[in-house]
Design a protein around this nucleic acid. Sequence first.
DNA 1: GTCTATAAGTCGATAGAC
DNA 2: GTCTATCGACTTATAGAC
Lengths: 213, 213
Amino acid sequence: MVKKMIHTSDKEQLILQAAMDVFIEKGRHGAKMQEIADHAGINKALLHYYYRSKEKLYSKIFEFLIWHNMSDLLSLLDSDLSFPEYLRTFIWNYTDLLKENPKIPLFILKELSEGGDTVQTVLKNLVESGKFDTSKALKVIQRGMDQGEIVRMDPLQVVATIVGSCLFYFISEPIFKTLFVDEASFDRERFIQERKESIYQLLSYGLIPRGDQ
Amino acid sequence: MVKKMIHTSDKEQLILQAAMDVFIEKGRHGAKMQEIADHAGINKALLHYYYRSKEKLYSKIFEFLIWHNMSDLLSLLDSDLSFPEYLRTFIWNYTDLLKENPKIPLFILKELSEGGDTVQTVLKNLVESGKFDTSKALKVIQRGMDQGEIVRMDPLQVVATIVGSCLFYFISEPIFKTLFVDEASFDRERFIQERKESIYQLLSYGLIPRGDQ
DNA sequence: GTCTATAAGTCGATAGAC
DNA sequence: GTCTATCGACTTATAGAC
């Protein structure tokens, strides 16, 4: 289960949840209406009764997922804290978010890269409606630089590094574990907790030892 | 175009290249045999003549892509350089690799996460044959710590942060540009070049200013 | 609203001529 | 080896009974 959609009847909610699970698991084309119906405990006909076509159902799911995922992410990027606290808070909260829903980012990124009209339109509409405001996040970083809390650098580069560091483990988990880890002794929960601290340490102080730290 | 497959006739090569392009662009289920045939300038029947089924063709393409991509990545992780040079070299080479083939990592990660038997088997076979040796990469990091070149930390955490930082821009490019960038004035080439320097600076020295640097 | 049955279309795969 | 034509399975979507 991922999240609740609002303003819908119980049955609609049930279908949307089933569709979300299957689309996330199998992707746009790998997902079948029959499997969604089975997952929701109804039949195909009822799917089409509520949502006219697979395309429309998919579109609704994608819009919901990108909207919530990006809203969560962007709200975490906005803050009044000092930069060190801001960085720590973001890493902790975003990692927790990813731990709860590890498959959503990869789903969104892949669907966007395959880039059908449906998906690009949904994204453009959300951006143009002003619902995704990235300016506040960039301002927090800019302010940190102006106040000498952090070194000067293109804020976009900072964002890319922070988000990429948090995201990587979750999108690469299958191959990461296969390549680097003995499944029997690997403690996933522990690794993820350590991941937070490691990212914070690395991005704050760097790999090269410093005298004062 | 991505890369040449070896030990195949010209026509086989043509088909494999077409299949690779279409599978990368559309994914396993989104790709259609007709489109691959069109792309190669032949007809569907000939596809089945050379490769008995879509499944076999897909399997061949996936194996080729994960093999080359991981070989390239792991060979970059192995080195005799001092750690600062090692880090710089890796970031530069891996970013260049990603710039040439920006869609391959996302393709591999998504296919692995959807995790059909085909794909998991291919990966397991490659790993068990000992062709993906990650130990050397971890040793380079361990040696850097033992010699005091870098701070002590789980080497896996270091790897995840470095690779994630390099990878992120390329897998998130569509949404990253839409959210943060004015398409008209954005200089992609320049941003990618700056990306290398920024990652190196950030991971080496951190965001928090230091006296001696 | 919910179901069964089926229409309509798509796509992978093959038969068979050349 | 390469093509056209077609089969057969699967999947989306709808018709129509309840």
